[in-house]
Amino acid sequence: MKLKAITRAAFVATGVAVAGLSLAIPASATTGATASDCAGPVCSYTLKINGTYWQYEAQVNNNQTGTGVTSWIWVYTNAGAAHADYYLNGDSTMHTLTSPVDGSTSKNLPKDVTAFRVCGDNGIGGDACSPWAHPTY
């Protein structure tokens, strides 16, 4: 009798957990690019949140020239705010560039970008981020 009650409770708990998962699935993120899309010095990512119109984009260009400038990074969102996290050549500190709400921003950089990702609201109280991209430099 006790075993039957435990089995029934486990079944109900599993059903509740699965129901909770199905609620989170529409807010999951999908990416429009993979790290292999960065075969050159110019690389872009688009991150879309399923079930919403939210889109976050970032681009890196390691072909920039100018006084003290070797690369450029840009981040855009059509929703709240987005941010691009990135690392510079020879610098182990992660840097972040944040877009304004429903807008974009860019920044010239003194070193090439070795890795970057784009992130934004996932719709369930946290951040969704693309995989890290590694443009050449």
Rank of each mutant, 00 (worst) to 15 (best):
I49D: 03
Y53Q: 14
V118S: 00
A9Y: 02
P110Y: 07
E57I: 05
D102E: 12
A115Y: 14
T105Y: 09
T77L: 05
G20Y: 15
W54A: 12
D127N: 15
Y45L: 09
S104T: 15
L21A: 10
V42Y: 04
I6T: 09
T96G: 01
H95D: 10
H95Q: 07
V118R: 04
Y45D: 14
A13Y: 05
G40K: 15
H95T: 10
T93I: 09
A128E: 02
S99V: 05
G126I: 03
A27N: 14
L109Y: 04
V118P: 03
T34W: 00
T30N: 11
C119N: 02
S28V: 13
T14K: 00
L21E: 09
V60W: 08
L23E: 14
G125A: 13
I49H: 03
A84D: 08
G90T: 11
A115K: 15
T7W: 01
G80R: 11
S92C: 00
T70C: 02
R8Y: 14
N63P: 09
N63F: 00
C43H: 04
V16E: 04
S104P: 04
S71Q: 15
L88E: 03
D127I: 07
N108K: 12
A35K: 11
D102K: 12
D121G: 10
W132T: 10
I49F: 05
C129P: 07
Y137D: 10
S28D: 13
A39N: 15
Y137K: 15
S71G: 14
A81F: 06
C119P: 02
T65R: 07
G103S: 06
G68L: 07
I73F: 05
C119W: 07
A58W: 03
A79T: 04
S99P: 11
M94Q: 15
L88R: 03
D102H: 15
W132V: 01
D127M: 14
D37P: 08
K2R: 13
K4G: 11
D91Q: 11
P100N: 00
Y56A: 04
T46F: 01
C129A: 06
G123E: 10
Y87V: 02
Y76M: 00
K107D: 06
C119Y: 13
R8L: 11
W132L: 12
A35L: 07
S130K: 06
I49P: 04
T98I: 03
A58T: 13
A133H: 13
D102G: 10
A24L: 14
N61K: 11
G120Y: 06
H134T: 11
